[in-house]
Design a protein around this nucleic acid. Structure first.
Ligand code: ZN
Ligand code: ZN
Length: 758
DNA sequence: AGCACGCCGACT
DNA sequence: GTCGGCGTGCTC
């Protein structure tokens, strides 16, 4: 008897296995492998849905088998390639079937999508007439006058983008509507990114010799792959800012399309701007589908439909676009490949590059990883020949770099300045305010990690085994290494210089905002960090306000780096380069280098080149030195040595096991039980020698408590042990025997190749 | 997860 | 006696 193996769409590890269902005669035609089907499930015969992941023959069943109830309409069945990928993801990321399916399958359309409408205000008369109207408007109608000012330049504005409280401007708008000057209209929400979609065949800028050579090499590789039908090659395109990487992407996509292939272009969510879109649409027009969070549900569904129906030849989007089920996939471009947003934060915790390489292997697509500051892992693979490394060293455009001034904060102490703003930065902000230029100030998140540092010489206490900054914990007054759990008494005297000026670092954007407010009471200040930007779109709002010059100073964490491209910005201040450098994470140096390189390498705008003030207690650190020199390879050479010495990626693979729950004892005991279980099995397998280095923890996570939930984690590293064996043991304990190790109140999730261990 | 079954305490 | 508390176990 032929039965369908169905994965029930229920988010639970208890039911994470295929269940058999009979296929009734009338459904034989409609049900395919990959179909979304209706079933009854459990003792209550609850109506549920699920996916058919396969069919099999059963001789005589040892249990009663229910019938499939039907096929869900309007959900395209998963393709064979998609099902293979789901199975591979489950194995690789140790997630559930449904988690893998949710990642791979396009988002479901929920019935009729009800879209909220946006309310706009539009000018009904010409701007000249408006001017005379403005004169006629009495002075006491302050609100009305203010609103009319806006419409001198704009024809149409979002109602809620008008200044003031809703009730205040609503009255004024109503009055103006009665006068026939303005009108209020409703429009369906629409993403700005979708507005331009016709090819305009802009004049092509001729490529430089360097670009030509790079393009030819990659095109040849593509041709070879297509002819020999082998798995696709991966290229690492390392090019400084302004070296013309995008132009090469366009050339490669063109080549792929010529050969009847399709392409995926991944761009970090935040840099997917109308300008970026325009580069692509100008060349390829309607053949593009866009996947981006600014899309409304309806738009999103429409774009996926376009992919499904084969109308799209190119898909541009953020992380999840890597799953676009294009046929004849030939080219995958990952721009800014070092960006952490390519790593999923939900289960399965995949990295888009991992999926790209998988598809490259299965579908024969070529992968292009582009970056000015590649991740250390990628560059290492480029050097080892696993990727083909192509470097673009010349800037295409005349590109003036800003003035970078480094301020040694240790000297500020000598002159009696104890604040977080150096004299130099203070005077530069003053100057910039006077000249009506905008300022961006970077600072890392607070509370995240507090560390101890000598203010005189910059010494920071690190774990001797892990080379990781030790984190200060207040309740116990101890320094703790979050990797291995080693503890230490806090230092009161610097072991390097003997000074007793030991300072706790860990201030955040809020405190800085207060500081700046006090220093420059007349300045308009915006702040953007995790706390202020929880609601969706809040991010964009703050950035847009800053772009429109509604503020003079923008304070924030790394997430404001998009603001670097705003033309009004003429001063960038890095308050404490050390706050990233001293994060308790193996990627701290890399992240510092990437941010500083980006800031120091930003294009000067127009006449004013702008300037950068970089404050640090450790000016001699290689991340800082090489970033100022804009020397990636110099940085890489220093960093890779340390990664090898302390056995971090790319020299080891990491697995992070996260345990979470409201009962701290239960969470801790579970963590202990799991680590003991893994140790026990490894010992029996004859690996007692590597237990100490392989299994670190359990330790409390750096953020020990989120939302009433206590968090512990175990870190696994493959030192002196086969990666596969370590993973097998991990899977055995955490997945196969989960019931014995993990109670239901404790949440477990596994992160393979974590981006950071914070 | 979500539901049924079942085995004890306190309530008409 | 029996109503309902939640601990236990199963779902094709
Ligand atoms: Zn010192
Ligand atoms: Zn350590």
């Amino acid at each position: 008897m032929e039965v369908a193996k169905v994965i029930i769409d229920q988010n639970s590890h208890h039911t994470d296995r295929p269940f058999d269902y009979k296929i009734p005669g009338e459904l034989r035609e409609a049900v395919k492998v990959g179909s979304r089907v209706q079933v009854t499930f459990g003792k209550g015969h609850k109506k549920m849905e699920g996916y058919v992941l396969g069919v099999k023959d059963i001789e005589k069943p040892r249990y009663t088998i229910k019938n499939l109830q039907g096929v869900v309409q309007n959900v395209p069945p998963l393709s064979e390639l998609q099902i293979d990928m789901i199975l591979w993801m489950k194995k690789t990321y140790l997630c559930t079937y449904m988690e893998a399916i949710s990642a791979v399958a396009p988002p479901k359309a929920y019935g009729n999508i009800k879209e909220k409408k946006d309310v706009y205000v539009r000018r009904k008369i010409s701007s000249e007439k408006l001017e005379s109207q403005l004169e006629k408007t009495p002075n006491n109608a302050k609100r009305q006058r203010e609103i009319l000012q806006y419409f001198l330049e704009e024809e149409e504005l979002l109602l809620k983008s008008l200044p003031g409280i809703k009730s205040l401007y609503k009255n004024a708008v109503n009055a103006l509507e009665k006068k026939g000057i303005l009108e209020v209209i409703e429009k369906e929400k629409a993403s700005k990114l979708l507005s331009m979609k016709s090819p305009s065949n802009p004049p092509r800028v001729p490529l430089t010799t360097e670009q030509k050579k790079a393009l030819e090499t990659m095109k040849e590789g593509f041709q070879q792959t297509q002819q020999n039908g082998v798995k696709g090659k991966t290229y690492l395109l390392h090019g400084v800012t302004g070296s013309g990487k995008t132009e090469l992407y366009l050339g490669l996509i063109e080549k792929a399309l010529e050969m009847g292939k399709t392409a995926i272009v991944l761009v970090p969510e935040i840099s997917l701007t109308p300008q970026t879109m325009e580069r692509f649409t100008a060349r390829f027009g309607e053949a593009i589908a866009l996947i981006h969070s600014s899309l409304t549900l309806k738009e999103r569904y429409h774009e996926w439909e376009k992919i499904q129906q084969g109308k799209a030849k190119i898909v541009i989007g953020a992380r999840s676009a890597i799953f676009a089920n294009l046929e004849n996939l030939g080219m995958i471009v990952v721009d800014e490949e070092h960006e952490y947003t390519y790593k999923s934060e939900q289960n399965p915790k995949y990295h888009a590059i991992e999926i790209a390489k998988y598809r490259s292997e299965k579908e024969g697509a070529q992968v292009i990883l582009g970056s000015a500051t590649p991740s250390v892992e990628s560059y290492y693979r480029g050097e080892k020949g696993i990727y083909e490394l192509i470097s673009l060293d010349r800037r295409v455009t005349k590109h003036q770099l800003p003035q970078v001034e480094m301020v040694d904060m240790r000297e500020e102490l000598d002159v009696g300045n104890l604040s977080m703003i150096s004299g130099s930065l203070k005077s530069q902000i003053e100057e910039n305010l006077k000249n009506r230029g905008q300022t961006i100030l970077f600072l890392n998140r607070r509370g995240f990690s507090t560390f101890l540092s000598c203010k005189k010489c910059g010494y920071v206490e690190k774990c001797q085994d892990c080379d990781i900054t030790m984190t200060y914990h207040l309740p116990s007054d101890e320094l703790i290494c979050h990797y291995c759990g080693k503890k230490k008494k806090p230092i009161t005297e610097c072991p390097d210089c003997g000074s007793t000026t030991i300072k706790h670092f860990g201030y955040g954007t809020q405190k800085l905002e207060k500081n700046i407010e006090n220093l420059f009471p007349q300045a308009r200040i915006l702040r953007m960090d995790v706390d202020t930007t929880t609601e969706k779109g809040a991010h964009e709002k703050v950035l847009n306000a800053f772009k429109n010059r509604e503020a003079d100073i923008l304070i924030g964490t790394q997430m404001i780096s998009k603001g670097l491209d705003f033309p009004g910005v003429t001063l960038v201040g890095i308050i404490a380069a050390d706050s990233i450098l001293n994060l308790p994470d193996f990627r701290a140096s890399e992240r510092t280098f990437q941010l500083l390189t980006q800031v120091a390498g930003r294009a000067g705008r127009g006449e004013d080149l702008g300037s950068v003030v970089l404050q640090t207690y450790k000016p001699e650190h290689y991340s800082i030195e090489e970033a100022i020199k804009q020397d990636y390879v110099g940085f890489y050479k220093r960093e890779i040595g340390l990664r090898e010495a302390f056995e971090y990626p790319p020299f080891t693979a990491l697995y992070l096991v996260n345990l979470m729950g409201e009962d701290e004892d239960k969470v801790y005991n579970t963590a202990i039980k799991i680590s003991k279980g893994i140790r026990y099995i490894l010992k029996n397998e004859g690996h007692s020698d590597c237990l100490e280095e392989c299994i670190l923890g359990p330790n409390p996570s750096v953020i020990t408590k989120i939302n009433k939930n206590y968090r512990y984690r175990i870190l696994l590293k493959n030192i002196n042990i086969d990666k596969q064996l370590l993973k097998k043991v991990l899977k055995y304990v955490c997945i196969n025997k989960r019931k014995q190790f993990v109670p239901d109140e404790v949440n477990l999730s596994i992160d393979f190749n974590p981006y950071s261990i914070i």
